[in-house]
């Protein structure tokens, strides 16, 4: 049997882990978007009955994990490990959610690429035979991210045309070695790519090269053409990042159009006040755990390449004049 590694950055799974269930919880604005009805729960406000936004975000993550476990007809005790992360310092949303669930946690930080990172690692753990029931989850909250990375939320700051709106959303999937549902067949670990972009209010432009680099590596490593997939979906490049990615595809000789889109572009309506589109870990997470996996279950989508993109700077590194390093991980999800 040949090994599981293909090319330089890609792995294929011999016993592709099954996504037996998924759950998504989103904030009020995401609920008003075009996919609002696909999410398991739409919160009426940003507090979720908690005293702080941070607690609300952690609760969203915790409840999404619980719901996913429930939908897989499992008990919380059955889960052997949670792979989770978020945008906040020391990934507190994931830490506190795992504390309340009292389950083993492997905390991750891949900024907004965390959904793909946790799926990728979870699939490796399951296919590797280390665990058979794993949860991969992530969350973001508009206000917690805003106050950590930008300004106090009540401050009257004018956004630019390139500014993206951090999604308030959490998503969780249960990965199992056996069962029915879409399977994770391959994954590509992304390189950190930095094209010297320094504008914190234009993250899409910073992340687009990382996304294209990973997609190219994935296709090269597996010797696949883009139309192998019904849909190649980046995480949160937004309108401008997506437009740039499309230009870069042409330069690199890959043309996934018209099967290419971006979660940050899809999550909100044209008339919602989000400027260049959505961003944040929850953006890719809720789109995957809501509409995409549902469409796969229904059979209207068969082969998906999810490429979640993350910008890996911190406010400190930005104030010190550093540019924005970015990463993108790709996960192939297929339904037979």
């Amino acid at each position: 049997m040949p090994g599981k590694k293909r090319g330089k950055q890609t792995v294929v799974f011999h016993n592709p882990p099954v996504i037996t269930s998924s759950a998504s919880i989103v904030g009020p604005d995401e609920g008003k978007g075009p996919f609002g009805s696909y999410f398991d729960q739409v919160l009426p406000d940003y507090m979720f009955g908690e005293k702080t936004w941070e607690k609300a975000e952690s609760k969203m993550l915790r409840e999404a994990v619980k719901l996913a476990i429930n939908k897989a007809n499992l008990k919380e005790d059955d889960i052997e490990v949670i792979l989770a992360g978020d945008l906040l310092n020391q990934t507190i949303s994931a830490n506190y959610a795992a504390r309340d669930l009292s389950l083993p946690l492997l905390g991750l930080y891949g900024a907004c690429s965390t959904m793909a990172e946790s799926l990728l690692l979870g699939a490796m753990l399951v296919d590797g035979g280390f665990f058979s029931k794993v949860v991969a989850a992530t969350s973001s909250h508009h206000h917690t991210a805003e106050r950590q990375f930008r300004f106090p939320t009540e401050q009257g700051v004018q956004p630019t045309v390139t500014t993206q709106w951090t999604a308030t959303a959490a998503g969780a999937v249960v990965l199992q070695s056996e069962g029915s549902g879409p399977r994770i067949t391959a994954a590509t670990v992304g390189k950190v790519v930095d094209m010297g972009q320094k504008d914190m209010s234009n993250m899409g432009s910073a992340m687009a090269p990382a996304a294209v680099d990973t997609i190219k590596a994935h296709l090269d490593d597996l010797k696949r053409s883009p139309d192998y997939y019904d849909l190649i979906l980046t995480g949160d490049l937004g309108k401008i990042g997506k437009a740039i990615a499309e230009e870069l595809f042409v330069v690199k000789g890959i043309v996934p159009k018209p099967f290419y889109n971006d979660c940050g572009v899809l999550l909100y309506d044209e008339n919602q006040d989000v400027n260049a589109g959505g961003s944040g870990c929850g953006c890719a997470a809720c789109m995957l755990c809501g509409p995409l996996l549902k469409k796969m279950q229904e059979g209207s989508l068969k082969k998906l390449l999810l490429v979640a993109t993350g910008a890996l700077m911190s406010p400190t590194s930005m104030f010190q004049g550093e540019s924005i390093p970015c990463v993108a991980h790709a996960v192939a999800v297929e339904m037979n």
Binding site: F151, P152, T153, E154, Q155, G156, V157, Q158, P159, D273
Partner: peptide, 25 residues
């Protein structure tokens, strides 16, 4: 005030009211 600032930009930041907004926010 933040809704106003989103549209007005410097128009609501430069007057003394913008300074008050920054502190209260």
């Amino acid at each position: 005030y933040d809704e106003l600032g989103k549209r007005a930009g410097a128009g609501s930041i430069v007057p003394i009211t913008g300074f008050a907004n920054a502190i209260v926010a």
